[in-house]
């Protein structure tokens, strides 16, 4: 194992984590502000990817695809907030889970109805294709570097929005005491719709960015949704900072676990058995991490103390 391989894997883990953050940020915001468990968040991720693929195929421009992803996912988010989610705030979590699970099924079959069962084509834009050579002779895909950069900028923008703007103040106030800010004259319905659409747009952006290097197909949102939930549980539900730290932790654990665990087992086992055991344990690594964090801090790294 060389240093180059290690650095490359750390970059991979970082990139994975940053993309996970885009998804987890919306999820944690929605839970923090509205107390809603949104299982359909993965569907919004899928809608982003499909909008991007359709727009990129029609116009030939990846950038327009990204715009379409943001707009499409935000519109879908606002729409389901107005039509469905709004009725669920006062209900208990089981009702919310049931209703948003139904949304997953509706979105999946709806997407299949519109786009068909075959995966769509969406590729990395020409200008960002291929690898670049980093200092130290590391070859790394330019697109993945761009993802890290883009994700960090979005994270910075989100922190600025929450910490420095009026709407951010309202969001933070809404997390603490929704009756009080409603009494102070803030239009709470509009705030909820905005937060939901913002979360949806971030998920859609992640779907489009990741869709270019993965498969744009129905059901692509569900596996990553589970990871996003793990992320916000580790980070502390409701905390954007927690989502960022949790996402990077999950990304690094997953990537480095897949690299080191098989090698570690090879010290004590036959190679074939070591590979299989290591791979099996590596896929559990993030859940072990989650369990560890929860034992140490039951409300997550940055969660409010109960």
């Amino acid at each position: 194992m060389t240093l180059i391989l290690l650095v490359e894997q750390v970059l991979n883990g970082l990139q994975f984590g940053i993309m996970l953050f885009l998804l987890a940020a919306g999820l944690t915001l929605i839970f923090g502000v509205m107390g809603l468990i949104n299982l359909a968040h993965g569907s919004l991720y899928m809608i982003g990817a499909f909008c991007a693929a359709a727009a990129a195929a029609a116009t030939g421009s990846f950038l327009l695809g990204l715009v379409a992803a943001l707009a499409g996912a935000a519109a879908a988010g606002a729409l389901i907030e107005l039509l469905v989610i709004r009725r669920l705030y006062a209900r208990d979590h089981l009702d919310q889970v049931l209703a948003t699970f139904a949304l997953i099924l509706i979105f999946s079959e709806g997407t299949r109805w519109v786009f068909g069962s075959f995966p769509l084509y969406l590729d990395v834009p020409e200008a960002l294709a291929g690898p670049v050579t980093l200092p130290g002779g590391i070859q790394y895909p330019l697109y993945r570097l761009t993802l890290i950069g883009a994700g960090l900028s979005v994270a910075a923008g989100l922190f600025w929005l929450i910490a420095r703007t009026r709407i951010g103040v309202q969001i933070r106030a809404g997390e603490n005491d929704r009756e009080m800010i409603a009494a102070l004259g803030v239009d709470i319905d509009r705030l909820y719709t905005f937060v939901f659409a913002l979360g949806a747009a971030l998920a859609g952006l992640a779907g489009a960015l990741v869709g270019a290097i993965q498969s744009v197909q129905v059901g692509m949102g569900e596996p990553v949704l589970i990871l996003a939930f793990v992320t916000i549980v580790i980070g502390g539900i409701g905390s954007i900072k927690g989502a960022l730290v949790g996402a990077v932790l999950v990304g690094l654990t997953d990537t480095l676990g897949a690299l080191f665990l098989p090698a570690l087992f090879e010290l004590v086992m036959a190679p074939a058995a070591a590979t299989q055991t290591g791979a099996a344990l590596a896929s559990m690594a993030i859940y072990i991490l989650m369990a560890g964090v929860l034992i140490w801090r039951p409300t997550g790294l940055y969660g409010a103390r109960a």
């Binding site: 990553v224 990537t255 897949a258 791979a279």
Partner: peptide, 22 residues
């Protein structure tokens, strides 16, 4: 040279690709 077993349903292969290249 090597046998790599990935997770079923895995979507990101950066780690495996780095191994293959090495």
């Amino acid at each position: 040279e090597d046998e790599i077993y990935t997770r079923l349903g895995q979507t990101d292969y950066a780690a495996e690709i780095a191994q293959i290249r090495a």
